[in-house]
Design a protein around this nucleic acid. Structure first.
Lengths: 385, 385
DNA sequence: TATCCTAGAGTGAACGGTAACATGCGCGCG
DNA sequence: CGCGCGCATGTTACCGTTCACTCTAGGATA
């Protein structure tokens, strides 16, 4: 009768039913609890006998097998709805070997990049009907990563994403079962596995060229920890841009991503008269740098221009608002999931390298001071070159 | 013979074996991959026949059943080690009904508090041998939360923690199957379920009293969004402190936790000459406030004293360094997991309310300016009363 | 018209564990 | 000395799906 509703069972991630916010509150069918009937959850067999078909037919409907007559399909779906049936993931996993779960290895820190990436992965996975199981590691030594992978593999996840931008992480991956799809997020593009990265080199170039374009002789750099691939790539991009412009390359200072380390680097840089343009490898450190400059009465941007990296939410409200390089972590996460799902579907294990382009966001910290009101709201990359 | 090694199988979270970083690299037993033998993973039956016992005996060893002779136990463990056996979680879940997985409903944002809590939960869960499955929600309307719970319940997690500090979240919980242990993190202490909270009222009082102690007539407040219980509790604590001191209660402004909203509030407050002391409901907003005050040439702390809430990593490097209230999210997460695991073990569903005390961290933004060097490093709550 | 193929449906056996019950054996007790 | 009890172990039945077959009817093909 009312065949206008979306096809397929209600728990499936389905673009149509996702939009269908038509919530029949008054309906007799309770959403999660079976209400008064304290019996066990209905199984596929219950559905089968209720619909008058074999359990296998129900299974076929559930898995969208083509050779099921439309009328039968409808009867089964009706039975499913009636009984409030939900498939048992454990049983499904046992029988099929697939868990519909992706594992994520994430660094146990509130760093903006990793966290945003994790949520990006989570939301993309959800769209594809996958669960996400997170294992956090305190540090990315090989032992920790191996142990994390071991946990995930014990849980027999279908695929693994590692947000652990270290070379060591790649080594640990080598002793994973070979069948398991893996993607390294912000990993080494040279590694022999699928990788999703933001083009850090390009981002660093954008930042450096932007500063050079304002007439600075050269650009000083506060780098991230050497173990981080991102930190290295940003150094490389910065160096390339300087060399291309024939500018001096002053050895970079290096921090550990924290505001504290940025502050310390800033204290050094504030004493160098020539340091009129700074490219800082992330926004947190840039905050520390700004503070150090402020304490030494070096005005930003008049005396020193500063550019950060990441575009954290707060950077538009630093003093002064920070010019920075934005990375679209949502897309990074989505790309990672795409790769895993593709490999899962096709069964192939080809290596894919997705590169996402960053974007320069110009604010006051790198340009002659303009009126505050406009400067604060103007966050899109308005070229000043 | 060599009974000095840790008891029990190697994958178990075991304090002893966790410390045992004695990594026999040269051992013939591959850690994850079965190496050349491309056969399927060994099952409990393989272990049983290898050890010359029944599969049930193996199961008993795995589950630490008491009545297994020591010698048998050793034989089984040896077989397990030999074959590199790892239990199949899906099969275990199917047979036992328990998945050893905790579900976490988290807000899809990089807000410091929720993220830190999530990692706190993750690491505590890991200690207890539980996996963590995360479902992110974009907002905490009832529909989103219900859907998130539905996903977790489909995955048949053993227990659920909700980091969603809204009253609506509680409503959604009501249609969960009644058997499922649930804990609300930063939830409503009045709700009829287990709750872990930081004492927000107390934290707000600390902040307010601190400011009053510096001789300010009254304290203005920039609150968080009204839907957030934490925001409300902070308002309540602030109000209580003011009333206890007989100070005026000026209606609070309210923001949405972002620096932007703090900036907007700050623009208003900067115009009010009486506003010499501000308590801002989180550090991000405080950043925006500081910036607005800076633009209007209101000096902090000389003209206006500011106190934030959360103690994010960056707040020590704001201009000036921010006095704020620290919450120990690691402990919050641990407490939440404790409650769930307790309920799981005992089978009871008693309500527990754990309250964690916050701590005031004094920095320059609220006190007469001292020398920068000491002020930056002094982060512990040094009373200035 | 006899034969083959295919769509649609059913049957029984995995999948890898846990749980309940059965068995054998040594030992204390009336 | 027979009985019952508890320990150590084995046997068998699930748990809820998917998978590899089988079966059947009807249409195309020769």
């Amino acid at each position: 009768m009312s065949s206008t509703a979306s096809e397929g069972p209600p728990w499936e991630p389905d673009a149509v039913s996702a939009l269908n916010v038509d919530f029949p509150e008054a309906s007799g069918e309770p959403s999660l609890a079976r209400g008064h009937a304290r019996a066990r959850r209905p199984s596929i067999a219950d559905v089968a006998s209720f619909a008058g078909v074999s359990h296998q037919t129900v299974s076929r409907v559930l898995n969208k097998h083509p050779s099921v007559r439309e009328i039968t399909r409808a009867r089964v779906l009706a039975a499913i709805e009636q009984l409030g049936y939900r498939p048992n993931t454990a049983a499904r996993a046992l029988a099929s070997g697939r868990t519909k779960t992706l594992g994520v290895v994430a660094l146990d820190s509130s760093l903006y990049g990793p966290v945003s990436t994790m949520f990006g992965i989570q939301s993309a996975a959800q769209r594809f009907g996958y669960f996400v199981s997170v294992v956090a590691v305190h540090s990315i030594d090989r032992v920790s990563v191996t142990e994390a992978l071991s946990r995930l593999s014990a849980q027999s996840v279908d695929g693994i994403a590692i947000i652990a931008p270290f070379t060591q992480a790649h080594e640990a991956l080598s002793d994973l079962p070979t069948g398991m799809p893996v993607v390294a997020v912000e990993g080494d593009p040279e590694a022999d596995m699928s990788v999703v990265t933001v083009d850090q080199v390009e981002g660093a170039k954008l930042a450096t060229e932007h500063l050079l374009g304002h007439g600075h002789e050269t650009v000083f750099h506060v780098a991230g920890p050497e173990e981080w691939l991102e930190a290295r790539a940003r150094v490389a991009g910065w160096r390339e841009a300087l060399e291309a412009a024939g500018a001096d390359v002053v050895p970079p200072l290096s921090g550990d991503w924290t505001s504290r380390s940025g502050y310390e680097a800033g204290q050094v840089l504030a004493k160098i008269p020539d340091a009129t343009a700074l490219f800082v490898a992330n926004d947190q450190m840039a905050l520390g740098v700004l503070r150090a400059l402020y304490e030494r009465d070096r005005r930003v941007p008049e005396d020193v221009a500063v550019v950060g990296f990441d575009d954290i939410d707060e950077s538009a409200y630093f003093i002064p608002p920070l010019t920075t390089v934005r990375q679209d972590f949502q897309r990074v996460g989505a790309a990672a999931v795409h790769i895993l799902v593709d490999q899962l579907r096709s069964g192939t294990r080809r290596q894919e390298h997705v590169v996402i382009e960053p974007e320069l966001v110009c604010r006051q910290s790198s340009s002659p001071r303009s009126s505050p009101a406009t400067a604060v709201t103007r966050t899109k990359g308005v070229g000043l070159g």
